[in-house]
Design a protein around this nucleic acid. Structure first.
Length: 638
RNA sequence: GCCCUUGUAGCUCAGCUGGUAGAGCAAUUGAUUUGUAAUCAAUAGGUCCGCGGUUCGAAUCCGUGCGGGGGCACCA
């Protein structure tokens, strides 16, 4: 007789076997209405799963992650069901739950269109109304394979073959329609509610392998209330409004064009922002003891062969043949060039750690389909540095890199940073002893940073372990930016050495690190994070002076001159438009501060300040204004 | 690279089933001299992404190339 333990510790006793739904009914009527799935000793099960022995359970509703995910999983099934009702002959494959929704991959010759999606949605609503009951059957493997093969579902048959021997092959029925599935599922199709929407169709490789055929994937979202669905759709719209490609055009920062896909044409304002970031970082790195260098963009093939890039990275490299038939590569990374600087002249242990930074522009031939605005380009500038040091110095150097990165992110408005740590991969170079040392050093640095971190086991580079710095933006999206890698390989390959205390030559350890990763990408992230409303010091155009009418042009020009002479980027707007027009115009182009000058201001030698997104007007003496804003207009410094 | 989709004025877009292009904003000029998110009017502005084909005739249909978008794969 099952003795059921509830999450609050209470126990319920049943005379015979009992289902989750019956337990919910026993607890309360409202719970029985809201219950979606149950966990039995930690395993998620259907509500009508029969319990016949003692166990502890928890019943989930749509308020729980488990409940919502089950709703989404069921919505995916109902999607597949609807598709097969409308388009017979379409094969189903897999349909998992993902963040905010689900997808289902189908095999069908004709592409699904936008109208098809609306048709399918309608059919899905019908299926919800039909409220088809769910039931689960466990089939013998052979029978299942046979059945799905006969039904023309070759993908399903293939999936069954790959289910581990010890697992049951379960088939879920929603009415007559059925699908191979691990479950659990809701008790009937009516339970999912009507708060779903099909979002888009796309291609997706069978089993995620680009050697396989391409299936059609339908993405959908599903929630437990209309309110949640609406909020989600609004969130998507908000994210679209922040799109850096759109804002970059509106703010006149940069553009792309056909002649050079994936390469940025930086306009004056965008380049100003770019240069500001660089000079900010120069100052930071200078203070941290880095020496800035610069290496050639084009280097002979032989160097890339020696470094291993030719073999390992060749598919992504641009090459160039000169009129005399020599082959060069346009650098996809700065490291080999930097090692060559290290190699020039004799280095002593006294020179270590030697930190060389480089704002190096690299070119990589990225697959056309992966290009995405500033976030994924073919030509970009790394805020790169290579630290040559001894094994004993690894920990300290890693820690100082981590601190530098955090400091810089904070200055740019990102306080929320997490780390991803990747340790030794299967295929690697170097002795385990050295790996032990470098992994330990990196981990120590991570722990000292007190940041949240995750471990990606075996994901390190073949030459050493690495940390990736992930920052979370204003609307909760994660962006991988900085990276820190320990390299025990390249210095040796390229013959780097230093003279140690004992007079023998030793190979230095090299740390690769980038703070933002790519300046281009980071600017994209900055724009999206701030929705284009950059902090005052980063704004490419910081102030616009607006005369109320042309009568005050001279005064406005004078104010503008004064501001500019203080090194603040300012313009005066003398166009023949009224004040309202100009305020709207410059607000839309996200100018942080507008200074209005009219009779009142001329008479009192003041300006009236209007800040972006604030209707508050603030009248101030011009010298006081400058005093208050001068420091704010420059990069933060410590 | 692969699947789907898309390419018309500086920008955002309209242009039904083929008959050599249109709006709003921006620009220019003029009027207006404006006090916190669009003053009025006039003017100018286009190899309809490139190439090839079908047709008496192509922005429109077909093929192909290039670019953009959404995904997949890739992301040292």
């Amino acid at each position: 007789m099952p003795n059921i333990k509830l999450p609050d510790g209470k126990k319920l006793n049943f005379k015979s076997k009992v289902t989750g739904f019956q337990i919910a009914e026993k607890i309360s009527k409202s719970l029985s209405k809201e219950a979606l799935v149950i966990s039995v000793d930690g395993n998620l099960k259907d509500l009508n799963y029969e319990i016949d022995k003692d166990c502890s359970i928890k019943i989930y509703t749509s308020k729980d992650k488990e409940g919502l995910e089950t709703i989404r999983h069921d919505t995916a099934h109902i999607l597949a069901m609807a598709v097969q009702e409308i388009f017979p002959g379409t094969q189903v494959t897999i349909g998992p739950v993902i963040e905010n929704g689900f997808y289902y991959d189908f095999a069908r010759k004709e592409p699904f269109t936008e109208e098809d999606l609306r048709k399918i949605e309608k059919k899905m609503l019908e299926i919800v109304d039909r409220d088809e009951p769910t039931h689960r059957e466990v089939w013998k493997r052979d029978k299942a394979v046979e059945h799905f093969k006969k039904a023309g579902e070759i993908y399903k048959a293939e999936i069954i073959r790959d289910i581990p021997k010890e697992e049951e092959v379960s088939v879920y029925f929603h009415g007559k329609w059925h699908d191979l599935c691990r479950g659990p599922h809701l008790m009937s199709t009516g339970k999912i509610g009507k708060y779903f929407k099909l979002m888009k169709v796309s291609g997706a490789y069978w089993r995620g392998d680009s050697n396989n055929e391409m299936l059609q994937r339908i993405y959908g979202t599903s929630w437990s209330s209309q309110k949640e669905l609406d909020e989600y759709l609004i969130r998507i719209e908000e994210a679209e409004k922040r799109d850096h490609r759109k804002l970059g055009k509106e703010m006149d920062l940069f553009h792309f064009r056909e002649e050079s896909p994936g390469s940025v044409f930086w306009h004056e304002k965008g380049w100003n922002l770019f240069q500001k970031l660089i000079s900010y970082m120069r100052a930071k790195q200078d203070a941290a003891g880095y020496k800035e260098v610069n290496t050639p963009e084009i280097l002979d093939r032989s160097l890339w062969e020696k470094s291993g890039h030719w073999e390992k990275f060749g598919a992504n490299m641009y090459t160039s043949t000169t009129p005399d038939e020599k082959v060069f590569a346009i650098k996809p990374m700065n490291c080999p060039g930097c090692v060559q600087i290290f190699n020039q002249g004799l280095k002593s242990y006294r020179d270590l750690p030697l930190k060389m930074s480089e704002f190096g522009k690299v070119h990589r031939y990225e697959p056309s389909g992966s290009l995405h605005g500033l976030l994924r380009v073919r030509a970009f500038t790394q805020d790169d540095a290579h630290i040559f040091c001894t094994e004993d110095q690894i920990t300290e150097e890693c820690l100082s890199v981590t601190n530098l990165i955090l400091e810089i992110y904070k200055d740019l408005g990102f306080e929320n940073v997490i780390l991803k740590y990747s340790d030794r991969p299967e295929i690697r170079v170097g002795e385990d002893k050295v790996w032990d040392k470098s992994e330990k050093a990196l981990l120590q640095a991570i722990k000292a940073s007190k940041l949240e971190y995750s471990i990606n086991q075996g994901e390190g580079a073949f030459y050493g372990p690495k940390i990736e710095f992930v920052l979370r933006d204003a609307i909760g999206r994660d962006w991988q930016c900085g990276t820190l890698q320990v390299d025990l390989n390249l210095p040796e390959r390229l013959g780097a050495s230093f003279v140690d205390k004992d007079g023998t030559k030793k190979v230095p350890v090299m740390l690769h690190r980038a703070l933002f990763g790519s300046l281009e990408r980071f600017i994209g992230i900055l724009i999206e994070n701030y929705a284009g409303k950059l902090p005052f010091w980063l704004a490419p155009l910081q102030i616009i002076v607006i005369p109320v009418s042309s009568e005050f042009d001279e005064y406005a020009k004078e104010i503008n001159r004064k501001i500019k002479s203080n090194g603040i980027i300012s313009e005066v707007d003398l166009k023949n438009h009224n004040l309202n027009y100009k305020i709207r115009d410059h607000s839309l182009s996200k100018i942080p501060i507008l200074l209005i000058c009219g009779k009142k201001e001329v008479d009192s030698n003041t300006v009236t300040i209007r800040r972006l997104d604030s209707k508050k007007q603030e009248n101030m003496d011009i010298d006081l204004f400058l005093k208050k804003h001068l420091a704010l207009s420059k990069a933060p410094s410590n």
